[in-house]
Write a protein that binds this DNA or RNA. Structure first.
Lengths: 346, 346
DNA sequence: CCCAATCCTTAAACCGTTTTAGTAAAACGG
DNA sequence: CCGTTTTACTAAAACGGTTTAAGGATTGGG
């Protein structure tokens, strides 16, 4: 009743286990006749090599792990991950690899890492002092960092967050906005400090705002979801200090702000301009369509996988230069209605 | 330089391998003093059990596989999967399981199945005669079918596709539409026949259309992506036989039809009404927002994982009744402009 | 002082593969 | 006819853990 093993096949075919193994992995080392017999018997018995046994023996599992810093249910609510997986997946399929999603188990990412039988890891948004990275180092498993900080020990892949954010802020300022709010990404794991990504975007926003001599922006922390964005809108200042423009660090939050704003009777963009970040596909279909900072998410995934695969082959790889970001101007931004600048509605 | 094994720890701590194993898995079987010493040494050496070895020995890997019938890059372009994973993930995290994505490798899902070291599988949208299912049976691994057909050998989870589709079609017909087009889902794998899901939805549409005595609808096959939906719009009949309403089997395709239609100068819904299927979150934000058939995707994932976990515990489980679907009426549907019914724009 | 019970600890078997280091027989060259 | 290759196959040793069955102290009771 239990699983058919290589020994069963060997006995049935009247050969050694080695021969059976060769039949599958080294067919040229067997005689024509035996090869066919063994394969035939294996087929009849429905033999399938035990993956774990194979992984143990070959020291490779054919799987790469994606280290996810938060719960799957929150992370996969953001299309960002879907897109990243599209990029990763393309490379995986090309190299016969499968993809293991590794979220924190029991709150512990470290524990999850240990449990995972993978040949390499892609980590998402870990800050460089995260204890999970120590574990990875200790195990000595190839790792590529995505949306982290460049690290001496692992190649890391980033986009020009600061430049993109700066362009976004400058866009609003040039439209005549002065009073801005910033929707800040929450820390990736229950830690005090921001993710490196959030820090870089924040710095880009601030750089542009200072250069323009505009007042300090109002910061709100909000999760990467439409609902969180909507809540963020509620906590924006009212009255005189009401921001006319919102810089969101994610498209999902931006969409939340837009719809909450519209539900509260504001016109977007006339009364409230909103800029997102990421340019997930959905931002092109929203009402109004979302002005946002585009980052090449699929490319990012593809590149990350490609580097990891190099690493797994034993090659050494350098961190590539940050990928390019660009502002995509759509219909969620315009000059503020009360601005003295001409209203340039697109 | 190589990995720290249990034997290294044992030697360093002056105990047997067994003692080290007990220290982690059966601490109560060790004396206070040795326990602490062993754990200390393990910590210092940075010992981490080899997952594959563990999996081989314990006959469980702590992973469940998601069988994906198509390339990751196409499947993850559809938010449907993201949502399903949110449901699956919730249960996985609760039971300390990780999630392995298993797409076809080298075009072969069967091969990928063999390679995957998992304790159970969740299969998506396989038709019941798919050869992959044979492999699963042969290996004798617990399996739950999602969006398939109910099978004697595996529990399967479905929603009331037919009822939902019927409601969608009836909605358009009641608004006064006569000439309808149907965007049919493509077959999941390179096979001739439709997926069971597509078949059930089609049957629902047709049932309503026949009941209303409307003319045969015009069918177009299109992939589950916005681009595919847009292409589908292009291939719709023009002139007299132009459909005034489109029934799409996925929200993504529906969104594609809408935007292609708008780009071609049609007003949605006045000139063209569109109904989607799934009710992915994005369909609430589109312009206009999308009327669609809601299915509880997250619940579906949660339920599938729950059943699989039962199955893995050795319990026997029955296929639950199809989950409920309901029509969500938003702004992409109205009476056709040239209808003799009053235009009831919502 | 002996026997049994209790507590720790361990040697050895096992999980199911791959791989190394052969061996026996056949083929070959001179 | 005799080494030397080549061919076809195999026994045994990894791989790195867990688990079973048993062994050796230590303790307590009689």
């Amino acid at each position: 009743m239990s699983r058919v093993t290589i020994a069963d096949v060997a006995t049935a075919a009247g050969v050694s286990k080695t021969a059976v193994s060769f039949a599958f992995n080294n067919p040229e080392r067997l005689g024509q006749a035996t090869l066919e017999r063994v394969l035939g018997v294996a087929q009849d018995l429905g033999y399938t090599p035990h993956p774990a046994a194979r992984a143990l023996s070959m020291r490779r599992s054919g799987t790469i792990g994606v280290l996810i810093p938060q719960r799957l249910s929150t992370v996969f609510a953001n299309p960002f991950v879907s897109e990243l997986i599209q990029g990763l997946g393309e490379q995986c399929e090309e190299h016969d690899l499968t993809l293991l999603l590794v979220p924190p188990l029991d709150g512990s990412l470290e524990g999850a890492i240990r449990q995972a039988s993978v040949d390499g890891f892609i980590s998402l948004g870990l800050s460089p002092d995260d204890r999970a990275l120590e574990v990875l180092d200790r195990i000595g498993i190839p790792t590529v960092l995505v949306d982290s900080e460049s690290s001496p020990s692992h190649p890391s892949i980033n986009v020009d967050d600061e430049g993109g954010a700066e362009a976004a802020a400058r866009h609003l300022l040039e439209l005549g906005h002065r009073q801005l709010a910033i929707i800040v990404l929450p820390p990736a794991r229950a830690q005090v400090n921001n993710t490196p990504t959030a820090a870089r975007r924040l710095s880009g926003y601030q750089k542009a705002i200072r250069a323009a001599g505009a007042p300090e922006p109002y910061p709100v922390v909000a999760g990467i979801s439409v609902a969180a964005g909507a809540r963020a809108f509620e906590s924006l200042p009212r009255g005189k200090r009401r921001p006319t423009g919102v810089l969101a660090m994610s498209d999902m939050a931006a969409i939340g702000v837009m719809s909450a704003g519209q539900a509260a009777g504001l016109r977007v963009p006339e009364d409230l301009s909103v800029v997102g970040f990421d340019d997930v596909p959905a931002s092109a279909w929203t009402n109004p369509s979302l002005t946002t900072v585009r980052q090449p998410i699929i490319d990012k995934g593809r590149l990350a996988a490609r580097l990891l695969i190099q690493l797994m082959k034993g090659k050494t790889v350098e961190s590539p230069a940050p990928l390019h970001t660009s502002l995509v101007v759509r219909n969620s931004t315009s000059s503020p209605a009360d601005s003295d600048l001409p209203i340039r509605r697109r």
